[in-house]
Design a protein around this nucleic acid. Structure first.
Length: 385
RNA sequence: GUGGGGGUAGCUCAGUUGGUUAGAGCUCCAGGUUGUGGCCCUGGUGGCCGCGGGUUCAAGUCCCGUCCCUCACC
């Protein structure tokens, strides 16, 4: 297998490893600062991590956030992004941004779509207008956004897809990844951008298809590679078996990004299988439904048992929400649909996820990750499953 | 005072020519949410059908009385 180098000089370097598991810490260089791994990216789909300001994100400790090419292309459109001199300036976030390519959204959101080897025709969920998205166009838009980590334009088959469908997605993802790479290699904007390019492995939960997909996209991975097509409806154990397979197939010197995962306990397990980077809607979406993450599991602030509870969400959390407000008050805010409640819940959950990652890095560095992870997972799921 | 309309779940209301154990939405209570629209999904609690008589095998439904709400007119 041959590694094809992109023009970027940026890299991922492993700093320490955990004995007994595949967990490791690392450092990803970007033009907008280094990222300690393992880490978690809050999701800022439309150029906003819902309810939180960039200042609050920094205070919570976020090093990198995720933006969505598909959503930003629909609204406000690339013309506005160009006029604003890129997404960073537009949203006033000066740290790294990873951009999703739009591949996943075309399949998960768009109602009407036609897929061919050339690209995807889809109908906008906003106004019904028709659009054509290709690997080249996705790369072009991610460059216009000013992305620090550009994701390959892939095809994600759903969790219930048969092997023939998954295989087609694997082949198409391979061809598209090569086109993405080819486009970037020829792009002046890319060579001067200091941006990473991450290919995405597909293949569902079938071992042979996963291996095939990994082998076909790996030549285009320089600093990192993503594991896509998981947490899309398959059995949880099948997901972890696939991650474990990826741990043995992917070279350990490249950063591994597990797309869309997950619950805190899932992240810890994935870290033990060698994953370095995560994103997930749970901390922010569930926050807006009143769910708070804590070391002792999740709690639904709408539950009546909190109506007169004058303690904070978590005694051990240093976020503004936990230092200042009671469960009783937070429940009150949620019962009345006050937007302040959504903000505090989002702030707490994002802080919780980022603190969790910080602790994971510390435990790996200490060499105590294996035992710590077992205890922590037990506590996290104590009141669930 | 006279005439009309109406009283059914916490709220807004559906309930066929009388026919099984009276329903819905919202609320309330509790689950879910994995490359994001605060959406959404799944369960559950909750009714002396205003009250009292009557007709009938059978009444939320028909009849009589009564109380309350509401509109119109004196």
């Amino acid at each position: 297998m041959q590694t094809v180098s992109l023009v970027s000089d940026l890299s991922f370097s492993r700093l320490s490893e955990d004995s007994g598991t595949s967990a490791r810490t690392g450092l990803l260089n970007t033009g907008r600062g280094d990222i300690d791994t393992p880490t978690f990216m809050p999701i800022g789909t439309y150029g906003a991590v819902k309810t939180l300001s960039p200042r609050e994100l920094k205070e919570a400790g976020a090093d990198v956030i995720l933006g969505n090419t598909y959503h930003l292309y629909i609204r406000p459109g690339m013309e506005i992004i160009r006029a604003a001199n890129g997404l960073h300036k537009f949203m006033a976030w000066d740290r790294p941004i990873l951009t999703d390519s739009g591949g996943f959204q075309v399949f998960s959101l768009a109602k009407l779509r036609k897929i061919s080897d050339e690209g995807v025709t889809f109908t906008s969920t906003l106004d019904g207008s028709e659009h054509f998205l290709t690997p080249e166009r996705s790369m072009e838009m991610q460059l216009e956004l000013g992305s620090d980590i550009i994701m390959a334009f892939d095809e994600c088959a759903g969790g219930g897809a048969d092997n023939e469908t998954v295989h087609k997605a694997v082949l198409r993802t391979a061809a598209w990844t090569e086109r993405c790479h080819h486009f970037l290699k020829a792009s002046d904007a890319f060579s001067s951008s200091c941006a990473h390019f991450f290919p995405i492995v597909q293949g569902g939960t079938d071992k042979a298809l996963r291996k095939e997909s990994a082998e076909t996209v790996l030549p285009f991975a320089r600093s990192g590679i993503a594991i896509g097509g998981l947490a899309v409806g398959e059995e949880k154990e099948a997901m972890f078996e696939t991650i474990e397979l990826m741990d043995s197939v992917l070279p350990s010197e490249k950063l591994r990004y597990l797309m869309g995962v997950g619950k805190p306990e899932d992240i810890i397990r994935a870290v033990s299988l060698g994953v370095d980077l995560f994103d997930c809607v749970l901390p922010t979406r569930n926050a807006r439904n009143g769910q708070f993450f804590t070391r002792d599991g999740r709690l639904n602030i709408l539950n009546s048992r909190f109506s007169n509870d004058m303690t904070p969400i978590s005694e051990s959390c240093d976020c503004y929400c936990c230092k200042t407000f009671t469960r009783s008050y937070l429940r009150h805010l949620f019962k009345l649909n006050e937007m302040l409640g959504l903000r505090f819940a989002s702030l707490h959950n994002v802080t919780f996820y980022i603190d969790l990652m910080r602790q994971i890095r510390q435990k790996i560095g200490d060499g105590t990750f294996a035992s710590w992870s077992k205890e922590t997972i037990t506590a996290l799921v104590s009141s669930h499953d």
